[in-house]
Design a binder for these strands. Structure first.
Lengths: 170, 170
DNA sequence: AAATAAATTTTACAAATGTTAAAAAATACT
DNA sequence: AGTATTTTTTAACATTTGTAAAATTTATTT
């Protein structure tokens, strides 16, 4: 960890800033100290928000980081953000020279993988309503901090559907 | 690779064999030499197939492998299978002692992660029909080798819906 | 080959979700 | 405070997908 910290710098960006761009090879990964961001892909007729990252999360263009190819997502900061920045190139060198860091990076990827697979499965056998209520349980702050259009996209439903779901209870 | 091979053994199981069990800590990971398997989770009213693994793929209970906790999936072999087996415990030791293997394991997880995320996003902005035709393009053999009930589950739709989609073209 | 079982398709209807447009509410700006 | 802008909700209708049951096809067994 100490060895990693030597190569990490701290950066800040205002709300609305586009941190990462689709179709670009991104050269850094970030750890969020403060703030929240959304990752989304552009499609012909709209945009799909597929992930939110907040305090404690790792933020990167996954495909870019893993394959060195162009990523498919834009990243927009939804609040003023304070981030820890680590250059991908530096990290790659550390992986090759330090076995502890290599295993840290492995664990990082593995844990993300479990999270993503679990979310994928949940999508397959929960109704939209169940997914909304689960999100409400696990990340109640998200619904406060992020506008509902993005939440709806994240849940894979239209904003109208989300409104209906929210109206059910009251 | 050579160092890995020393610890790998070859095993065979017949069609229908349940290779991995949900709610069990699984002690091995497998690489498929020949055959095909489906990973699925049991739910109160049915089962959800969320992944197929075939020749060249890595097969494991992901959560078990990563966290050492109970997994959530059963794995059924859909054909007679020949597998390479590697004990998780042995692998873990190799990770700690050999930086090349640690980075190989990291790459393994990272590439799976990109695949899973891309599939997750595709699920979010493609219609069921598009997903079926994409599967047909990318893995035409799957539709031949796996019964359609499982394919439907994998695509996240009912078997009736899948039948409708297949009927459209003809 | 006939009988049985399993898998797939079809049908009819119900429920969920999407689309478009408008209204209402909340937020930001001057 | 008042106006403009953005976000959220509501309404009406169209489309998609699901469920259950029957019909058909395919595979398996005797």
């Amino acid at each position: 960890m100490q060895k990693l910290e030597e190569h990490i710098s701290e950066v800040s960006f205002p709300k609305g800033h586009i941190l990462l761009r689709a179709n670009k090879v991104e050269s850094s990964i970030y750890f969020i100290k403060k703030g929240i961001a959304r990752l989304y892909t552009q499609t012909p007729d709209n945009e799909i928000t597929f992930l939110f990252c907040k305090e404690g999360d790792t933020l990167m263009s996954l495909k870019s980081y893993v394959t060195g190819q162009k990523g498919y997502e834009d990243v927009e900061l939804l609040e003023d953000c304070e981030l820890y920045q680590l250059k991908a190139e530096v990290l790659e060198n550390l992986y090759q020279s330090d076995i502890h860091i290599a295993n840290w990076g492995r664990k990082l990827a593995e844990l993300e993988l479990v999270k993503t697979e679990e979310r994928f499965i949940a999508r397959q056998f929960r109704t939209a309503s169940e997914r909304y209520h689960e999100l409400l349980q696990l990340h109640p702050d998200l619904i406060q901090r992020v506008q509902l259009g993005h939440i709806a996209s994240y849940l894979g439903i239209s904003q109208v559907s989300l409104s209906r779901i929210r109206a059910e209870i009251r």
